[in-house]
């Protein structure tokens, strides 16, 4: 079974608990959104999965094999992060060639065609690339290496709107032509909301949500109206947060909304993924 199984993973850094008993499964051929506030633990999780860090407890298995120090398990994944890991002086084209050595299924022609689309010059030194183009370079490697699990940590850092648009389309194209699992960790929630199927939200090192987009969007809603009416409606329901403007209150709820008619003066509206995320992750 092609999955990434994260079981009971905990990781501490000095006095911070970055991840606390995290258990997750990433299935094959799916696009996941890994969301969380700054410092929530997303990057730590991705670094643990890709053998860059060691967990304090728990285990991670890729396609049934423990990933730690295991070349075979590691060959099933590629992790793209904002760190610059390429040697001083290496040029883009050489980096592509080395990717072909380390990843046998790396598609050089595809990488070159993507470089052309994005305007990435093959003879440029990687260290001389701007933030945006450094991300583009790493994205192209990630899309071209044709492994079952592609981990993208803030993939669109520094990319202008045009390039971001192009990236999402290329990702969907690659996903359609050659299905694999993408795990996208990002702050740009609204942009990825359309393309992700499964949402994982991490808050302070714990997984607080792990569900399909459909379910998630159907579980969040907002009630607006006079303060008293909203408060009495809120009784017995799971309140995520609220917003008061004078005598008008908006309250955000989590749960299957009933289709019964609302009490006088109240209005119901939907919560998009970003609004939901904000309410779920506010302290």
């Amino acid at each position: 079974m092609k999955t990434i199984e994260v079981k009971g993973i905990s990781k501490n850094f000095k006095d911070t608990r970055a991840l606390d008993n995290v258990t997750l499964t990433f299935k094959e051929n799916r696009i996941y959104g890994l969301l969380g506030r700054n410092g929530a633990g997303k990057s730590t999780l991705l670094n643990l999965i890709s053998n860059r860090l060691f967990p304090d407890s728990g285990s991670i298995c890729v396609c049934g094999e423990p990933v730690m120090e295991n070349d075979r398990a590691l060959s099933y994944l590629f992790c793209m992060s904002d760190q610059d890991l390429y040697p001083e002086g290496m040029r883009v084209e050489a980096a592509f060639q080395w990717s072909g050595v380390f990843y046998p299924d790396f598609d050089m022609e595809y990488a070159k065609s993507l470089s052309k689309k994005f305007g990435l010059r093959l003879n440029k030194k990687i260290k001389n690339l701007s933030t945006g183009y450094a991300s583009i370079f790493k994205l192209i490697v990630a899309l071209s290496c044709n492994v079952p699990f592609v981990l993208l940590d803030e993939p669109v850092l520094g990319l202008d709107a045009n390039h971001r648009d192009l990236f999402y389309r290329e990702l969907l194209d690659a996903y359609a032509n050659n299905p694999r699992t993408f795990i996208i960790s990002t702050h740009l929630i609204e942009e990825v909301a359309g393309i992700i199927e499964q949402v994982v939200i991490i808050k302070e090192g714990k997984v607080i949500l792990n569900d399909s987009m459909e379910n998630v969007l159907s579980m969040g809603y907002c009630i607006t109206g006079p303060v008293a009416a909203v408060d009495s409606y809120a009784a017995g329901k799971k309140l995520l947060g609220e917003n008061v403007l004078g005598g008008l209150k908006s309250a955000y709820f989590w749960g299957q909304y009933d289709t019964d008619p609302l009490p006088q003066g109240l209005e119901r509206s939907s919560l998009d993924l970003q609004k939901l995320f904000i309410e779920l992750t506010n302290a």
């Binding site: 890709s50 053998n51 860059r52 120090e69 295991n70 070349d71 590691l74 060959s75 994944l77 590629f78 992790c79 760190q83 890991l85 390429y86 040697p87 001083e88 080395w98 990717s99 380390f102 990843y103």
Partner: peptide
Amino acid sequence: KPSFRFFIGNSISRKS
């Protein structure tokens, strides 16, 4: 050092 970062980024174990 420079090779370590490069190899880790290409999913190669420390053993190898």
